[in-house]
Every structure is written in structure tokens, then in C-alpha cells.
Simulated assay, not measured.
Amino acid sequence: MSGHGHGHGHGHGHGCGCQAEHEPAERGVEFGLYRRIDLDKLQCLNESLDGHGRLVFKPWEQRRDREKFVESDADEELLFNIPFTGSVKLKGVIISGEDDDSHPSEMRLYKNMPHMSFDDTGREPEQVFRLNRDTTAELEYPTKITRFSNVEHLSIHLSRNFGADSTRVYYIGLRGEYSEAHRHEVTICTYEASANPADHRVETMTPQTHFIS
């Protein structure tokens, strides 16, 4: 019920596009982590239409596109499970929504918890943010980089909005650095090659049958 207290319009969302026009090109490159998301495995829980959660991860130049969005279903919560194709150092997040009470007001970030569900949201998150309304994808929320230096899976829990029955999101931008995944299978050791022959003397007397009780 307290959501009405946030109704003051800041007015900066529509009238100051001039700054965005002169942004350094590098910022778009830094927000390119969407290309490192395994979209086929991305999950969005409580989305009203299946598959719409992945639509909000867009190229930087499409961050103000209003045609693609995700809206929550049963209540105001949304939970994104975002697997990366390698290891990420997450430095910042942008969340853009509608200029009304459906805009998320709180974001909770969790690291390396694949297949997270709403039952898991009682756990202590790595970081919590109070969000402001942002319709033009300008406000960045910097992370505590020491906590997000080896992220292979990121969960974003939008736990509440400004008072509406559902939450709507148009864009989620992720800024950071990416490194390739390590190929663990090439490090398998053939340690049996130098085994002591004495270790194998009992093999001739030990049946190789395994009984399953």
C-alpha cells in the first residue's frame, strides 16, 4: 500500500536524451554480456507468457525498444536464472521498466545457484538493490565486484514493484568481463599407469562379480 509514495515523476526519463547521444561507444561494448548468456537454458519463473523472459536481454542499441518485454503472472515477482557460456566478472546491472507502479523496486542478485526457485529466495543474496523507475535504461547499479568475480550462473530476483499487481520489464543489461569456460575433461590423469604391481596381487583371487542387495 505504500507504493503510492513513489508516484513523484522525476521527468528526466523523456527530456534529456541528449546525454545518451554522446555516450562513449565503449559502454555498449561493456554491456555486451547478453551475448554470453546460454539463452536456450535461461529460465524466467512467473512470466505470464512462456519465453518472454529471455526477450529482455537485448543488444545495447535496442535497450529502449518497447515492443519486447516480460510481465509477471501470479504476483509481482520475477526470477531469472541466467547461465553463462563461461565465467563472468559482473560489474553492473541496468533494469528498465514502465513509468508506473509495475516497475520493479527491488532487485536481489544470487551467484552460482542453477535452477533456483522461489523457495530458495529466502537465502541471503550476494547483493540487494533498491531500484528507481528507469524507462530509458540509463541507471546502472554497480555490483560489489569481489562477490561477482567468478559467475557462471546469475539469478536475478525482482522481489517487488511500486505497488502494481504485476511487474513489467523491458530491458536487463549486464556489464562486465567474460572468460572462456575451462575444459576439465582434458585434465583427466592416467594415474593407473604407474601403479605398484604389488597392489594387484589379490586381483586373481578376488571375483569380479558385484552383488546388488
Rank of each mutant, 00 (worst) to 15 (best):
P142W: 01
Q127M: 12
D134G: 06
I172W: 06
N112Y: 05
E185D: 15
R133D: 05
I145K: 03
E106W: 00
A181Q: 13
H153I: 01
H153C: 10
M107F: 10
E180Q: 13
P125Q: 09
E126L: 12
A137M: 00
R130L: 12
P142R: 11
R130P: 00
E185Y: 12
S179T: 15
H153Q: 04
N161S: 06
I172Q: 09
E124P: 10
Y178P: 09
L158F: 13
R183C: 08
Y178S: 07
N112R: 02
I188A: 15
T146M: 05
A137E: 00
R160S: 14
L154P: 04
V186C: 12
V128N: 08
D165E: 14
M116L: 06
R123W: 05
N112L: 04
T143Q: 05
F162W: 08
C189V: 08
I188G: 15
L109I: 09
P125D: 14
Y110H: 03
N150L: 07
Q127E: 14
K111C: 12
R133G: 08
R147A: 07
G173K: 03
P114Y: 02
I145G: 00
F118H: 03
R183L: 09
D119W: 00
R108N: 15
N112D: 14
T135W: 10
S155K: 03
R133W: 00
H115E: 15
L131G: 01
S105E: 05
S149E: 14
